[in-house]
């Protein structure tokens, strides 16, 4: 990884079969580099390919053409099992609809990635407590997802994403189901994580509130990289 380059896409295209032998080209020849510690957003209207691109970076899907290198590894050559191991070790995900596991408590939800990674019980307890402290949810440790507000649920999802201290966190529309206040709370937490832990964040969003926090904005239109610009965040992690 040259100069902290952790995500590198070259000539990436992705198409989906849409029936009747036809195909929909979601991404067209994307070239992109993302470096360690970036706070980057993939911005664009619905159907522009943001989530598809995020899925490729997260080894959840394979490109039809081109190469996707994440943390120095060719993601598109992974088998299902290799991709799963890669995600387990290196990537944290935050989803639009939180995707918390409903029968688990907040603690168990956050503990889950560590359980899958085979971390010892003592270490798990310590790390989960730390992550919940980060997102300010220590008092909700034993609550179930159904007992949480939208903002709290998304903070649990953030804690779950950061608990294993991944190098990259991919967040797909993380504020789409949140009100303004909760959105700002979540984003401030992410900025703090980015600054203090050096975690790279890549967002897929069209929410202006998210864009206000970004340091780099990559605009996608119709599956093509339309604009790649550096930003000065209007809002910082500690700002109210």
């Amino acid at each position: 990884m040259e100069n902290g380059l952790i995500i590198e896409l070259k000539g990436v295209s992705k198409s989906f079969a849409i029936g009747g032998g036809r195909e929909f080209l979601a991404l067209k020849g994307i070239d992109l580099e993302i470096h360690q510690g970036e706070f980057t957003g993939l911005v664009g209207p619905s159907g522009s390919g943001k989530t598809t691109l995020l899925n490729l970076m997260g080894a959840l899907d394979n490109a039809t053409e081109g190469s996707v290198r994440v943390l120095g590894r060719n993601v598109e050559s992974f088998s299902h099992t290799e991709a799963a191991h890669f995600r387990k070790e290196s990537i944290g995900f935050i989803f639009q609809s939180f995707n918390l596991l409903p029968v688990y408590t907040v603690f168990e939800n956050v503990e889950f990635p560590l359980l899958v990674a085979g971390v010892a019980a003592e270490e798990r307890k310590k790390t989960v407590t730390q992550a919940l402290e980060w997102v300010g949810l220590l008092d909700k440790m034993y609550s179930r997802p159904t007992q949480l507000s939208g903002g709290e649920s998304q903070r649990v999802a953030v804690a779950r994403a950061i608990v294993k201290k991944p190098r990259i966190i991919l967040a797909d529309e993380p504020t789409a189901n949140l009100d303004a206040e909760n959105s700002h709370n979540i984003l401030r937490t992410m900025v703090k994580l980015n600054q203090q832990l050096g975690t790279t964040f890549v967002f897929s969003t069209h929410d202006q509130k998210v864009i206000d926090y970004l340091r780099r904005k990559i605009t996608l239109v119709d599956g093509r990289l339309f604009k790649d610009e550096a930003l000065t965040p209007k809002l910082a992690g500690n700002d109210k």
Binding site: G58, L60, H80, T81, A84, H85, F86, R87, K88, E89, F93, F95, S97, N99, L101, P102, F112, P113, V116, A117, R160
Partner: peptide, 16 residues
């Protein structure tokens, strides 16, 4: 299904 997808995203293999 959503939970299954989440498990996969969190690194659980399909066979698991």
């Amino acid at each position: 299904r959503r939970e299954i997808g989440t498990l996969m995203a969190l690194g659980v293999t399909r066979s698991e």
